[in-house]
Design a protein around this nucleic acid. Sequence first.
DNA 1: TTGTACGCGTTATCAG
DNA 2: CTGATAACGCGTACAA
Lengths: 338, 338
Amino acid sequence: MSPNRPQIADVAREAGVSIATVSRVLSGNTPVAPDTAERVRSAVETLNYVPHAAARILASRRTDTLGLLVPEISGAFFQPLLRGIEAGASEAGLDLLIHATQTIPVKARHHTLGEHNTDGLLVFTESLDEKELSRLNAIGFPLVLLHQTPPSSLNIPVVTIENRAGARALVEHLITRHDRRRIAFLRGPEGQEDSTLRERGYREALEAHHLPFDPALVVRGEFDRMVAFESVNTLLSTGMQIDAIFSGDDEAAVGALQALLQAGRRVPEEIAVAGFDDQVLAGSLTPPLTTVRAPTEEVGRQAVQILVRLIKQEEVVSRLILPTELVIRQSCGCPARL
Amino acid sequence: MSPNRPQIADVAREAGVSIATVSRVLSGNTPVAPDTAERVRSAVETLNYVPHAAARILASRRTDTLGLLVPEISGAFFQPLLRGIEAGASEAGLDLLIHATQTIPVKARHHTLGEHNTDGLLVFTESLDEKELSRLNAIGFPLVLLHQTPPSSLNIPVVTIENRAGARALVEHLITRHDRRRIAFLRGPEGQEDSTLRERGYREALEAHHLPFDPALVVRGEFDRMVAFESVNTLLSTGMQIDAIFSGDDEAAVGALQALLQAGRRVPEEIAVAGFDDQVLAGSLTPPLTTVRAPTEEVGRQAVQILVRLIKQEEVVSRLILPTELVIRQSCGCPARL
DNA sequence: TTGTACGCGTTATCAG
DNA sequence: CTGATAACGCGTACAA
């Protein structure tokens, strides 16, 4: 780094004390005489001394840093998640090291973040393979999973949301309030837990109202605008009869709306549309999107709290499922409120 | 951390070599006999050895990590910026430490990220005070500013966008194509450089077409939906005569659109609206938003490249201004394209 | 090509 | 309350 940064020894000399004393006033966990402390502080000030983090970590065996592994940081879904995590970490006085795994092959993700540079890790769905997960778990490294239930062999806490019930309530709304019977489902990524559970909720709703499940109505959404746009286009062009679309997430719902708009189908009169997540944009769409509110920011905040407890070796719940809530707007056919 | 993590010595013993050799095959900068290297690698594998980052940094005096200081990470504007920076860092084989400064008082931001834990820093507008900036600059620490020209006393490279010309082109479009003459401006945060330059572009456009500048037409937008919503509401309720709104950014434009919708004013017939940035949501608004495209992702990518060169002690440009581009949609009054 | 030994800048322990 | 000194885990001259 830079040539002659001041070190703790320089501060000690300047203040006329030992390095141990300097260390003490800086960390504050050991009492130091007030005037001595003041001398040290002013020496720090005049020398512009900044403790070297690596040396500190090496000696103290703590990093005071949390790690976050997410597929991407720029998606709209991740905004509130990041905000919650940021806030939680900040409140706990911890730094946050973020790694977006999307561009990196799963194999290479192993050691960018781990026991060597963080005190604990927050892992979002699909961001780490099972092998590394179990390695970290085996050495007792604090781990919290987000939106992903761990393999049954591993006892790692999860924080996620109530996907199934939320999806079911939404689809039942479409059925009972708006009398929709041919409801297409834009499913998310294959094997993704949120997606799977939302599909389950969708099927439960159908069953509960004695509607047949038609596999042809389940198409790819991938939580992605473009994919959803294409899928809905195909659906429409094949003449498939539908009167509603339940999109696995709001992002895909945007694509669905665009496809319907382009095809000249009226929403919600002809085809109702609903999403999941209640991203910021949901209320600004045309028509405003009926969806399920996922408390994503809260997920982040809670996950950090659990991770912090884990780091302190305190007891934690092994599974936290935050409630979701139906958000009625106009894309389902409900009237606008004043 | 965990009790008995394997250390380099364990690997050395397991492979029957010295720790120096292990270090060499791991870093790869010094030739090692192929079979020896293989033995080491398999020892690493069986022991699940992961080098301790702090020890490595302390010994090598490099962190291989870039730092990013931004006011917030969850705003829509920052999505492409983060993506560009992530990508750039990843390509350069560097880790990325991100700090959102918004919640932290300016005074306390000093040493969360700096010469002690990164090799260089990317600093977004208003994220660091001048004192810390000059301290870092003084010790020769690599720094790149984003969307913010450095104090003239400091020679720190900047990467930003062509705000003035972009704003001017947009406002001229409103004037010449749509014959608007009472154009309100929703300005961004006081003293923020982007905001200042966009206002300058706005005023230049007015002057160029001999339109009077009316201070009453310049109101607070703060790059924020709610603030813009309130400002436009006030503007409308005071009976101020306007036929267009140029919003300092897309975010504020959303608020403006909502206020206009609620007031029953037709966009663009009665009042045209335009924004700046071309965020992802711009095309999904009603009507689709005419705006200026800011190459935000590219800003991130370029900034990382400059920072990397700086770290390598290579020559760099001191000022990189990326071009902006008018994006015509329908909120200005232009017809939709097929 | 490989091994030895020292240094990196702190914190923690143990005397005083 | 304060000082000396041994870790902390790895990189890297230097020597072999």
